[in-house]
Design a protein around this nucleic acid. Sequence first.
RNA 1: GGCGGGGUAGCCAAGUGGUAAGGCAGGGCUCUGCAAAAGCCUUAUGCGUCGGUUCAAUUCCGACCCUCGCCUCCA
Length: 473
Amino acid sequence: MALKFFNTLSRSLQEFVPLVPSGKKVGMYCCGPTVYDLAHIGNFRTFVFADLVRRYLEFRGFEPQHVMNVTDVEDKIIRHVRSAQIPLREYTGKFEQAFLEDLRTLNCRAPHQTPHATEFIPEMIALIEKLVARGVAYRTPDGSVYFSIEKYRAAGGQYGQLVHLDFENLRVGERVRSDEYAKESVADFALWKGRVPEDGAVFWPSPWGEGRPGWHIECSAMSMKLLGTSFDLHLGGEDLAFPHHEDEIAQSEGCGLHTPGQHFVKYWLHAAHLLVEGKKMSKSLGNFFTLRDLLTKGYTGREVRHLLLTAHYRESFNFTLEGLAASRTALSRIDECLAKLTELAETHTAPPAPELVQRFTEALDDDLNAAAAWGAVFEWVRQCNKALADHTMAPAAAAAALSAWRKIDEVLGISPAAAAETAPAEMLALLDARQAARKAKAFKRADSLRDEIKAKGWLIEDTPKGPKLKRNA
RNA sequence: GGCGGGGUAGCCAAGUGGUAAGGCAGGGCUCUGCAAAAGCCUUAUGCGUCGGUUCAAUUCCGACCCUCGCCUCCA
């Protein structure tokens, strides 16, 4: 069976074949954060999704080159920097660090490269110069440069590859302020924005005067510089398909760097939005969560990661605190099973048992059907538990099961990082005292010792092999 | 108004032209001195509504209802 992705370009499931079919190298670009504030849990759905793609490609033997940009110059950033009277880098650096920390909390593998928009200004200018030279971009009196969709189309460019909008009759929404810039056409978009007083200290010199780059051009400049003019995968949230990605295609393919028939990106993958309690996240509804909000409530990164990975990425997913609690219980089920397998396997080693790996692979090959993959995982857990309870599993089989788990967890990334906490001597002493009391049939004393241990944060789990202590979560 | 997703048990969520994965919650049981923990078993004659095609529809087609998103800030 082959790996298939839903390509937004074709609106269909397509087998994934890298641009260089014989090789393993895969260029993968994911639109990263705009670092003007803490990212919220909806943003992280997309980044956990990108991590899933990257990890699964690695699992399937590819060598993805994962690039995620950091947008560190943009309207909101400029506004904040100006009102706070601090250097751009100081402001954005803070949120970038927080973002990268959050990614680690969610156990996302660090992208191989995280280019900053502000470090690619010359590359952006070079692209804009090409577009101007080819006649598909024009300068306006205020020192801005716009991309002309009409001229791009006249030159043979195809606009509207990702979304099917009626560009002749675009409804002019309230967001389009016609007085903002002197655009020739409402659909044209800014490549370069001429400097205005509100920009404060945020500007760069350019052939068109001082100013700053438009929003879309950074992704074209950085992706083509780092991955080549044509690369395999481009990911992002569904809201980016238009206008961001559509414009990215236009300005990239409009530079004349591609040979006939060659495209900027082969596969476009878009993650659907996260809803919170059935509604789009908004601060006024009070359903706006950052990762840190959830950590404060006592949830962990792996629980959030699990929840974000339970649904298929192309379906909008309803995030609830109840769901997060369900993730916690579900994960502990896996943890218990792994602990028992580990105990049985002792020092045995074995290659991965094939069944779990196979079912897992079949699920994810099918456009990353993570929900089906979890189904395979939990059926495996049940089978293991049953065999463990019946004592029909040999140590070597337990080792093989663990190997299989470790293999798929390279993709899932939810194994507990640290080994289970060992109980302090005080607890062990109390436990011994309880055992002695039980043996003497002094159950009242035994129960009060149990309560005491519980009050100190530990649970006694009486098993056929004797009592065990577990941290009471 | 245009375009695109969805509506599957109490909640979340896969899936299929031949009779519904998985998780949480609920119920039963095992273990236990009793509990707890853990484990096992179990839980939708039904897949928004109404028609149509078919030997057979939750799945295909049509209409309708509801809902979410995008339509130049957006993950």
